[in-house]
Amino acid sequence: MNTLYEIMEKVLPFSWMEYNFMKNALLAVILITPLFGILGTMIVNNRMAFFSDALGHSALTGIALGAVLGIADTDISMIIYAIIFAVLLNYIKRKKTLSTDTLISVFSSFSMAIGLVFLSKGGNFSKYSSLLLGDILSISAQEIRLLGIVFILTLLYWFFFFNKLNSVALNTSLARSKSIKADLVEASFCILIAVIVMLSIKWVGILIINALLTLPAAASRNISSNMREYHLFSVLVSVFSGITGLILSFYLGTATGPTVVIIAALMFFITMILGNIKNR
């Protein structure tokens, strides 16, 4: 790890790089942003923004459940709850009843409220408030390694299952006629999102994790005409916003997460204008 730090200091000899916590934060950003850029492509294509939003909110409930059940590592209860929640939401979505989005909204609000009630009981909520904004500057080397493993695993999943995922997203009946197990593919994607959201929520924050998942892909959509461009631009926007946001937040003294989101949103407006010019 120390050799990595030395390399970073040599390559980027800026004043903010002197701090270890900034080096760690930069490494985390370099891991998280391309991951979100990639996942975001399918989240936006499938119109699942509501889904990742609901998942983000469920984090508090997962922690609350862990606390209530006496589980020492609330990260685990958070992930397990998120997976159950994700599968449930996916099931509701598949049933395609008319009130799908209402139903999901009800479940999501109910889940979140239960978590908030538990955690705020006795007036102790302030220790969880760092979850809302995220605290990337407190990430440790061990946690960075975990992110690294998740990153590689996600890339593997993406490499082997993307075609099936895309086919199911385009038209489920057609995918099934091609012997693709649509239900498994959808469920596995939901679980993947759940796990990744839960693992990054401490750093990115509940309030804006959904923005980070969807804005880069949305920006990329404005200017892409095929899957290769879509992925490339989504990752580029995500990484650029992440790094620029991190550095800016250091100098401006603002929270990192929201700063990144502002830049990503600006990128979206820029690409929207560019896309309009291209189409004319």
């Binding site: 895309n166 385009l170 899957m227 461009e229």
Partner: peptide, 8 residues
């Protein structure tokens, strides 16, 4: 949606 005929 950035899916080309080839992609699909």
């Amino acid at each position: 949606t950035p899916v080309s005929v080839y992609d699909m």
